[in-house]
Design a protein around this nucleic acid. Structure first.
Lengths: 209, 209
DNA sequence: ACGATAAGTGAAATGCGCATTCCAGTAGGA
DNA sequence: TCCTACTGGAATGCGCATTTCACTTATCGT
């Protein structure tokens, strides 16, 4: 409601003056961090981000109040369109098609931001966490819809199915030669495995352990 | 091959005297590191390992020549029986059964050593790397055998299939509530998806993107 | 048994990579 | 022009692996 208008000369929550170059530098830092998240072997130290932005390290840290907040903003910025895409697909296609398409794109996204996942381990990233929840919710809706349509099996717990899909997507994306072939093979196997299965007389994995 | 005989008074590769307590401390450090790898939220600093072993940090480092070598030895020690198990299964059961059983056990192993995977990122671990290759090879043999038996589909590249299975197993194991239910669901979906598929009249993922 | 002596030990010191903070100087904004 | 928000090179602090070094102790010749 109010944060969206803090460009150029503006006042913050209280009557604090915000200089225009500070706002611009904040934006530069954000862009630099975002760019580094997409680079394969990037180091992603504050100093590296600052160098990429043409700023001093202190400026980058001060603009966000800490490295965590900077990463949170950068990752959230990357995640937002992904979630929007999931919602669009959900509105435009059948749940099953949406799921398939979204998985393919999600894997491509993960592969294009290989550095991303390794960076948000022991950090406090509220915006990212919230958006992840949104993403999970969108996938859950796809699964629920596909179940209703009879497009995927209903003998598994929906929550388990969601976790399964999410974790597997992550794993495939992080595998070393993150090729399109591998992603396609993954989607094929996963979607075939998720289809309602024939009664299958011979083997059931029930008497194990 | 060479470490097995260096107990009590012994001589190393050249005429260097090795004191018995040094050998024992090396073993203590190894056991401590191995134990910590299986603890959920363990810190796994050299100091923590040393404390667990009742030794000084310097002793732990000197016993192996560095933290990497210590971790390498510990992880290799954990991996060896896993690989042996894979080979035993391969000899005793049908390839498909072996694959299914091994996957279940591999996931349990990974889940029981949650700390493990996060530790061997930017490290130099020759023994671990070699054993991982052995493990991949064993899984490849299972896949190849199952293909020959007609138990799994042959329309996917075998190497891709191996990567798919390995990465997915890793992902499932690392997911937060690493429950047995999740593991079972994963195996069910994966194995069903890997089965030779019916011609499937309606949907093929070919005209995508 | 009994020293002699060199391997071994561990608390403390060192070094390193990084995030964060200081502060003297710079430059927006009225 | 003046005021002060902002900047960035340098200093600080922290977590950790590794090294140092004065002290212990296992091992062996006697």
């Amino acid at each position: 409601m109010e944060g969206a208008f803090q460009l150029s000369t503006s006042t913050g929550p209280s009557g604090i003056r915000r200089r225009a170059d500070a706002v611009r530098n904040r934006e530069l830092a954000l862009q630099a961090a975002t760019a580094l998240l997409a680079e394969p072997g990037a180091v992603l130290t504050v100093e590296a981000i600052a160098a990429k932005a043409g700023l001093g390290a202190a400026t980058v840290v001060r603009a966000f109040g800490g490295k965590d907040a900077l990463l949170d903003a950068a990752v959230a910025g990357l995640l937002e369109p992904v979630i929007q895409r999931a919602r669009d697909l959900l509105a435009e296609q059948t749940p099953e098609q949406a799921l398939r398409t979204f998985l393919s794109e999600l894997i491509a996204f993960q592969a294009a931001h290989h550095a991303l996942n390794d960076q948000l381990d022991g950090r406090n990233l509220p915006a990212t966490t919230a958006l992840r929840a949104d993403l999970v919710q969108a996938v859950e809706q796809m699964i629920a819809g596909a179940r209703r349509d009879g497009a995927i099996r209903t003998d598994l717990d929906p929550a388990l199915t969601t976790t399964l899909i999410g974790q597997t997507a992550y794993a495939i994306a992080r595998s070393q030669p993150a090729s399109q072939e591998l992603a396609d093979a993954f989607i094929t196997v996963l979607m075939d495995g998720l289809r309602p299965q024939p009664p299958s007389p011979p083997s059931r994995p029930s008497d194990d352990r």
